[in-house]
Computed example of a mutant assay.
Amino acid sequence: MEIWINPACTKCRVAKSELDAAGIEYTERRYLDDVPTTAELSAVLDRMGLEPWDIARPKETREAGIDLPKDAAHRDDWLAAMVADPRTIQRPIITLDDGTTVIARDEETLGDVVRRAGS
């Protein structure tokens, strides 16, 4: 399992705490320091069935000056912009060993991750 985190993020700290409490092993990726490639971000999005703008953090996206149309023609532009400023990527993103990938910001999603990984 891999979790993309920003250590300053409360939701990321909660997710790590829950995984640790459940004794679940994971690889931590501090995605602000170890920035995903456009191919990695695209693969994560594909596994979630989402588009880049679906996981863009609104405030950070505005601050980064990303003002692109939300359509297939601009998907690669979104990916490039988000990789150029990874603060814009929602977190924490967890990929389970079976490839299932989620944004674990809410208690229900995080609980599901813990149940599935602990099985």
Rank of each mutant, 00 (worst) to 15 (best):
P52D: 03
R29K: 15
R29Q: 10
P36I: 11
R57A: 00
R29G: 04
T88D: 00
L32I: 09
D54E: 04
L41E: 01
A8E: 10
A43F: 07
R57D: 03
I5E: 02
C12W: 11
L45N: 11
P52C: 01
A22E: 00
R91I: 00
I55Y: 04
Y31T: 02
A43T: 06
T88N: 00
E40F: 06
I66V: 13
E60A: 14
C9V: 05
K59W: 06
Q90P: 01
N6R: 13
D20Q: 13
V83A: 01
R62A: 10
C12K: 12
A80K: 14
P52L: 11
E51C: 04
R30N: 08
D67K: 14
P7R: 10
D46L: 07
W53T: 14
R87M: 05
D71Q: 15
A56H: 12
D71E: 15
P86H: 13
C9E: 04
A72E: 15
R57S: 01
A39V: 14
V35G: 00
T61S: 05
K70D: 00
M48T: 15
A64G: 08
I89Q: 03
R87S: 02
V83R: 08
T61K: 08
E60D: 13
P52V: 09
A39W: 09
R47K: 14
P7V: 11
I5C: 00
I55D: 00
R62Y: 04
R29N: 03
K70S: 08
D67H: 15
I55H: 03
H74D: 07
A21S: 13
A43D: 15
S42K: 14
I55W: 07
D54W: 10
R75I: 09
K70Y: 11
R47N: 08
V14L: 11
G49N: 11
Y31E: 02
V83H: 05
E25W: 00
I89K: 04
T10A: 10
P7Y: 09
I5R: 04
A15K: 11
D77V: 04
L32P: 05
K11N: 06
T10M: 06
D46C: 05
Y31H: 05
D76I: 08
Q90K: 15
C12I: 09
D46N: 13
D67Y: 05
K16Q: 14
D77C: 04
I89F: 02
G65P: 10
A22K: 10
G65I: 13
E28A: 08
L79A: 12
A39G: 02
D54I: 09
T88G: 00
W78D: 01
A80C: 03
W78H: 11
A22D: 06
A8N: 12
E51I: 08
W53F: 12
G49F: 03
L41D: 07
T10L: 07
L68M: 09
L45E: 10
T27V: 12
W78Q: 15
T88C: 02
D77T: 06
E60N: 09
R13C: 06
S42A: 10
K59S: 05
